[in-house]
Amino acid sequence: MYLLNLLFFLSLYFSAILLVTMVFFSYANKRKKNRYLSWDKETNHLINEYLFAEKNRVIELSENVKELSKTKPFRDFIAKKIIIAVKTFSGETTRNLKKLYLLLKLNEDTLYNSKHVFWYLKARAIRNAGIMKLDNFHDIIFENTNHKNDLIRIESQIALIRLIGFDGLKFLNIITYPISEWYQIVLLKELKVLDPDHFKGIKFWLKSYNKSVIIFALKLIGSFHLFDFYTDTQKLLQHKNKKVRLQAIQSISKIFKETTATELFAIFDKEPIENKTAILKEISKFKDPNTIEPLLKLLHSENPSLKTKIAKTIITVDKNGIALLEKQSGANAHPLNTIISQLKEETNS
């Protein structure tokens, strides 16, 4: 019975302790909230003044702000606000905000946090350095582009691009961790805002032993239409990894030549289903009448679900596709007859 009694007393004490802690924390939170509310007005006003200040006008910090800016919570609070403003507004206005950031010596906090042991503080500091374009952080940021924590890593990669533009992609030379699909999307979005520039490293990245770097380089070729790399992309259609091949298929179609369709048909047979679907999707975009013949050939060899896709491709490439399909042998038998009647209705609507 000792165990029961022990448990009994422990649980009673513990629930009492919890009760007290809860009350304490909720009180502390309430106070924090009230404090934030009063800071809110102050900082909004300050930021607005800086945001819309005329050129070369110097705005003094008020005594109150000077006093407050000695405390850490306030510094974090205003830093957050400045970051939001810089992300929303552009042009002359952000230059003023950078002045404010430096005036409040928030860059020193950023420096301190960028070496912090807590990953999220470190990642946030690196992100802030990128958004504020603090040049002296270049080395710290570059060092962290291959950090083992994925958020620190990706935030460093983004920050490097924000800091030095396309040259920032130099991290692709050194990273050993894969870039996930999600972060590839994020990086491409970041690059889209910049003016297209020279892509020095692409040839090197296409030969990387990090597969995600190859895929990302292929995505760059595709999204920026880099016609110079046609032959390199073509070579990757034979890569042993199917995901690399898939991206090569998609990228080569963005920079396509007359011979592209033939090249894609050449690899069609060996590819897995996903890649086959991708090839068909790309070919339907070319609208090249020369592709009809090989497509008709494929129509007879593939399984039903691919047959539908091939038939659809034929129709998008050729306006009289349905007539062509109806002439095929087996057009009256299942499954081709169902496919044809479905396509007929879809084109009518």
């Binding site: 999220y120 990642a123 992100r127 958020l151 699909e181 999307i185 994020v186 491409l188 979005k189």
Partner: peptide, 13 residues
């Protein structure tokens, strides 16, 4: 707090 879900909305990928 680091993730911007809008990235996905606007991406063709």
């Amino acid at each position: 707090s680091f993730t911007d879900y809008n990235t996905l909305v606007s991406s063709s990928n």
